[in-house]
Design a protein around this nucleic acid. Structure first.
Lengths: 247, 247
DNA sequence: CCGCCGTTTTGATCTGGGTCAAAACGGCGG
DNA sequence: CCGCCGTTTTGACCCAGATCAAAACGGCGG
């Protein structure tokens, strides 16, 4: 919170979607070889970011959307009094910055939690290209829609789940996203602090800590500091299912 | 909750964006006369809906997006156990159904709270036309983005505001939306029950009722049943500002 | 016009999670 | 390798809002 945060450092590097291992997960998913080349021409800046950097800040003008190549970040909306509400955690393959298209101004900070690389996608170019490539257009719409769907899930969580359910949903979501990226679904590092988890889930850090300890005592997980292992994923699912949701 | 809900009744009526009084608020905002005519060809079904009807239901396949011509509705995601979480309230000029583009399936119910008319916008046609009309493409993107931005606001509300702040935000938001549609910003009918307000705000209906009574006792508003008058809008704004947010 | 049923209000009491406090941990810079 | 500072854990206590209960209201169908 009180750590000094550097303004983003720009390393202009040539990027190529066509050679990127994420291109089946990221924006160009499903494009032909030729279409990928067109994407390559559009995305020509890659930025390297260090922990604590901002990708963009609330209030700043929208320059581009950002596709995450590697790393981990959070986006958070800020209270006037300095408190923050984490609106999401983002990892490789995710596209961020879409909140700014409506007004031309970002409404949240995007803060790097683990050294990252992002590809800059100028909105104008994306619009231009998606007029020419229907499957890109469709995929972009799907990505925005999925963000809306995710947000509905978070509302459900914040609006009507108890602390244990929230934590279980959070862990299952991380697990599933790591799995989709080829990592272990049962063992991973939490890149964020208990306070950031709490902010995301509408809980205080003490409650997050206590609930994790409780899950550990119940044999559902093993945590030590940021290292987490899911031992009984089905029990976690049941925990959510009991008073859970259908999404 | 236990009221029997009819499956939507379809009245196929010819619609024309070019003659619709909402076209500066709705999807075709900013289009030329010729472009409006193209929109007219795309939207050829208008549906009349009665209180209690569903525009679409969670799990149903996406057929079209719906632009609200008149009326009022809520969208809600459902728990397995039957409880519901209201994700939003929608009124004329709003576009609903965008949550379904990602998966092709709706993930919430859209329930009519006040007799309504909606225009069906087939997604395929919208995609086709927005490839031809850049300003339509841009406006559609802005609308999706604004939905994301709205969702972030709701997360902030649910994640870190107290009951009074939540209610104040809710009333101010309704006020502002009615004003944008040419209605009074200080006097309007609440189309939803206390329970639905509570669900949206992550509160119980008793808390909503108590907090409204409290606002009334403080002279901030006058409520009788569903009729609401805002007496001191600035005091409401302050209430939010104190521990409030910057969006 | 009456009766019924869903909605709203208000009161009394309870509790999940917040708050305050302090100790233990752990990673990084020197 | 040590010391420091941010993070995490755990305990004790508190309170905003939930829950339970019941009365008042109001609109609609007969």
């Amino acid at each position: 919170m009180a750590t000094p945060l550097r303004i983003v450092e720009v390393d202009k590097l040539k990027t190529a979607c066509s050679t990127c291992s994420l291109h089946e997960l990221c924006l160009p998913a499903g494009l032909s070889a030729n279409e990928l080349k067109a994407m390559d021409r559009m995305i020509d800046i890659r930025r390297s970011l260090k922990r604590g950097d901002y990708v963009f800040r609330a209030g700043a003008a929208l320059h581009a959307l950002y596709a995450i190549r590697t790393g981990f970040m959070k986006s958070c909306v800020l209270h006037e009094d300095g408190r923050e509400q984490v609106a999401g955690f983002h990892m490789m393959g995710d596209l961020i910055g879409m909140d700014a298209i409506g007004t031309g101004q970002h409404l949240c900070d995007a803060v790097v939690l683990e050294d990252s690389e992002v590809c800059e996608i100028p909105l104008k170019s994306l619009e231009l290209l998606s007029r020419e490539i229907p499957s890109l257009q469709q995929h972009f719409h799907r990505i925005m829609s999925r963000e809306i769907a995710r947000d509905y899930g978070v509302m459900l969580l914040l609006g009507s789940m108890r602390a244990e359910e929230r934590l279980a949903v959070f862990l299952l979501n991380l697990s599933q996203r790591f799995a989709a990226r080829g990592y272990s679904s049962t063992e991973f590092h939490l890149r964020m602090t208990r306070e950031e988890i709490g902010s995301y889930l509408g809980l205080k850090l003490e409650t997050v800590s206590r609930t994790l300890s409780q899950f550990q005592a119940q044999g559902l997980i093993a945590v030590q500091n940021k290292h987490l292992r899911i031992l009984k994923i089905d029990s976690l699912r049941e925990l959510v299912g009991q008073h859970g949701c259908r999404i």
